[in-house]
Amino acid sequence: MEQFSKQYYSISEVAEIFKVKTSKLRYWETQFPHLMPKRRSSGIRKYTPEDIEKIKVLIQLIEEKGLTIEGAKQAINHRGEAKNVNTPLINQLTEIRQFLQGLREDLGE
C-alpha cells in the first residue's frame, strides 16, 4: 500500500489524487458496497488510505482497463472468490508436497 501522510482525506482531495470528479466517487459508493468512507456527524466523507487503495483498484479496472461498472463488480467478486477457493487448495498441495518429501527421505533419495 502506498504511504499517505494523513489519516483522513476529503472527497475533493481524493478526487484530485485520481483526477476524477467528486460526483464519480459518490456514484461509485452507491455501486460498490466495499467502498464506504467514514462520515462525520455532519455527513462529510472521510477517506482513509485503505479507501484510497480501493478507489485505486476501481480506477485500474474502470478507467484504465475499460471495464463497465458491472464488469468491475464481477472482477472484484472474482478476486475475493479466488482467494477463498485457492487458500484451502494451496494448503492441501503443501501438505501433499511435505508428505512426498518425507517419503523421498525415507527411501534415501
Rank of each mutant, 00 (worst) to 15 (best):
K54S: 15
A15M: 14
E105F: 01
K21V: 07
N86C: 07
D106F: 08
K46L: 11
E53Q: 11
H34Y: 15
D51A: 05
W28M: 12
W28A: 07
L35C: 02
Q3H: 13
R79P: 11
K46P: 09
I62R: 02
A82S: 14
G66M: 02
R97F: 00
R79V: 14
E13P: 14
S12D: 03
S10K: 09
A82M: 14
Q101F: 12
I96S: 02
E53D: 08
Y27W: 06
K19G: 04
L89W: 00
I59K: 00
V85I: 07
K38M: 12
K73R: 12
K19H: 06
S23K: 07
T87L: 06
A72Q: 03
I55K: 03
S41L: 13
H34M: 14
I69R: 02
G66W: 01
E95N: 15
I11S: 05
S42A: 06
G80I: 04
S41A: 12
I76F: 01
K21L: 04
E95P: 09
Q3R: 05
A75I: 06
G66D: 01
G108C: 11
K83R: 15
Y9Q: 03
T48G: 04
I44W: 00
Q101H: 14
R45I: 08
K6T: 10
E2W: 06
E70C: 02
P37A: 04
Q31W: 14
G80V: 11
I55R: 03
F32T: 03
I11R: 07
T87K: 09
Q7S: 04
K65S: 09
Y8E: 12
Q98I: 02
M1E: 07
E16K: 10
T48K: 08
R45A: 06
R104V: 12
L93V: 08
I17A: 01
I90N: 11
L89N: 00
Q3K: 11
L103Q: 13
L61E: 04
H78T: 08
K83L: 15
S10C: 11
E29Y: 08
L67C: 07
